[in-house]
Each structure stands twice: as structure tokens, then as C-alpha cells.
């Protein structure tokens, strides 16, 4: 078992621009150049119109809780050290079909023991980023009052 937090491979040309944007604290999704449909996670072809052309659309970072859970042991060692934590599935404001996983984070960027007051399905969230390596920040979600 690995001792570190597992991180995404960021050199895949299909999703490299997403990870580059996270380093600028920006959340982006693909938008089809043909039919304007959003898609996430990034993929080469639009399933609506089969176009291979797309642009990267910056999102506002506003979202709501679609669901959440609180993993408990046994976990990977690096995650056991972070307990207790909450994982949120966030539905972004711009498109109800775009849902992105992230840790529930405190306003100061913490993951462990975040105040869960107000945590419920439908609660408002705002994106935040936590840098784990020189090439990757992972988006997380902060509850908005």
C-alpha cells in the first residue's frame, strides 16, 4: 500500500489543461466547439455531436452539494492521517449535469475535522484548491454561509 495520497497523472494531453488551470486556482471544463455541450471528466470526442474540437470554459466555482460521505477505516494510510474528513460530490452552478468530487474544506484550506454545520444535500459550496505537488492542485469545496 502506498503511503502518500494518490494523485492524478497530469501529463495526459486530454486533461492536462484541467490540471494546469488548477495550479492557477481555476476550475475549467471542456465545452464542445460544435454543439457547446459541457463535458467532464475531459474526453476526446463530444458524445452529442462527435466533434473533436473543444475549448476550456472557466467556471465560477459556485456549486451545491449533490451528495457526500465520510469514509472511515480501513483506508489508505495517508487518508487515515487526515481523518475525520468529508468527501463531497458538487453539482456546479453552470450545468446541473457536471458533478465534481472534492474534499470538504475549511475556509483556511484544511481537510481534517472541518465544521460540518450546514452540510446537507443542496447546501451552497465554493471551490477551493489544495496543492499536493508541483504539477497538481486538487479542487475541494468550502461551505458558503
Amino acid at each position: 500500500m502506498i503511503d502518500t495520497i494518490p494523485l492524478p497523472f497530469t501529463a495526459d494531453p486530454i486533461d492536462a489543461p484541467f490540471w494546469e488551470a488548477t495550479l492557477r486556482s481555476q476550475l475549467v471544463v471542456q465545452q464542445c466547439a460544435g454543439c457547446q455541450a459541457h463535458r467532464f471528466p475531459p474526453r476526446p470526442m463530444c458524445p452529442q455531436c462527435q466533434s473533436l474540437d473543444h475549448r476550456w470554459r472557466p467556471l465560477s466555482g459556485d456549486a451545491t452539494v449533490w451528495s457526500y460521505t465520510k469514509p472511515q477505516p480501513p483506508l489508505l494510510p495517508a487518508f487515515e492521517l487526515l481523518l475525520p474528513y468529508v468527501v463531497v460530490l458538487a453539482q456546479v452552478a453552470e450545468d446541473p449535469h457536471i458533478r465534481i468530487i472534492g474534499h470538504l474544506m475549511s475556509k483556511d484550506g484544511g481537510i481534517t475535522g472541518v465544521d460540518e454545520a450546514g452540510l446537507k444535500i443542496g447546501a451552497k459550496l465554493r471551490v477551493a484548491f489544495r496543492q499536493h505537488a508541483s504539477d497538481v492542485s486538487i479542487p475541494g469545496w468550502v461551505l458558503v454561509d
Binding site: P6, L7, P8, F9, D15, P71, I101, G102, I138
Partner: peptide, 20 residues
């Protein structure tokens, strides 16, 4: 338990956030 340090498949979108 066999998750690697870098994830190349679709699980790269959830496992780094502790959903393993």
C-alpha cells in the same frame, strides 16, 4: 489497497479526494 501513487484512469477524478 493496490492504488498507485499516480492514477491514469477515470479514478483520477475521485481517489485523490479520499474516495478510494
Amino acid at each position: 489497497a493496490g492504488v498507485q501513487e499516480r492514477i491514469t484512469d477515470h479514478w483520477k477524478w475521485s481517489r485523490p479526494s479520499g474516495l478510494v
